[in-house]
């Protein structure tokens, strides 16, 4: 099977090499292309990416003027290879756990109708530079929350959804996940950690009021679409799980 990992990047020089290496360490398990859209970065991100693209055939680098994360995701989608079987996402400041894809691809091998596997993600603050994983004793939080990178998707399924809505400044991932749920996909939920999400001060999600508004807009758009699905339509249940808020001292 061939895996395409989509990565929009903007001013991520401090993190992007680790993000890419966390993917490249899994290339023995699956044929992989990593589609990186450098969205007009003004720090050293472009230099790092050009260097890595020369060293690793798996990396397909696309450089654009800054147009926002949603547009960058769509550009990446358009560059997915025609023979791609599976798609996932990794943000340029996050990490992919070792063995994640080898584990989750098995679900697709055993179920030809499977549209996606949705995993738990581990939030962390400090990275182990050697392991490319959360540092031992750093605070972590495991949750099956809203993140595209938590999913591994069949490429044909993603293509059937028609891309990201570029009207969203943020919450385009929520809108996309809502459209996934509305399509009543065949899915597998996983309690295994499929994504390491780095929490840091410059995260896009810091602007709470914009996030809240965009999230609400995604809900309204979903409500409008659901009128066409009839009054008996029910979203798949149990997809997201925040009851596992765990292990970290400040929550206990």
């Amino acid at each position: 099977m061939k895996l395409s990992v989509l990565m929009p990047a903007y001013n991520s020089a401090a993190y992007i090499e680790a993000a890419l290496q966390s993917l490249l360490r899994q290339r023995e398990a699956v044929a992989m292309e990593i589609i990186v859209v450098n969205d007009g970065s003004t720090d050293g991100t472009g230099d790092i990416l050009r260097g890595m693209a020369r060293r690793f055939d798996e990396i397909k680098l696309i450089e654009t003027k800054n147009g926002g994360v949603t547009r960058a995701r769509n550009i990446a989608l358009r560059h997915v290879a025609t023979d791609s079987d599976l798609i996932s996402f990794l943000d340029s400041d996050d990490l992919s756990p070792p063995g994640r894809f080898e584990r989750d691809i098995q679900f697709f091998r055993s179920d030809l109708n499977l549209d996606l596997v949705y995993s738990t993600m581990r939030l962390f603050e400090t990275m182990d530079e050697i392991q490319l994983a959360p540092k031992e004793n750093t605070e972590i939080l495991d949750v099956r929350g809203i993140h595209l990178g938590a999913g591994l998707y069949r490429t044909s399924f993603i293509r059937s959804l028609g891309g990201f809505d570029e009207g969203f400044e943020q919450a385009e991932d929520t809108d996309f996940l809502l459209r996934i749920l509305e399509s009543l996909p065949t899915y597998q939920l996983s309690d295994e950690i499929g994504y390491f999400y780095r929490k840091h001060e410059t995260s896009l999600t810091q602007n709470k009021s914009v996030v809240a508004r965009e999230f609400s807009r995604a809900l309204l758009k979903s409500a409008k679409r659901r009128k066409a699905l009839g009054p008996d339509f029910q979203m798949p249940q149990g997809f997201f799980d925040i009851t596992a808020f765990i292990h970290a001292r400040k929550w206990t």
Binding site: A171, F215, L219, F240, D241
Partner: peptide, 11 residues
């Protein structure tokens, strides 16, 4: 039927 998503949301 989206309470799990809303309770998990960035708000």
């Amino acid at each position: 039927d989206l309470s799990d998503l809303i309770l998990a949301d960035p708000i």
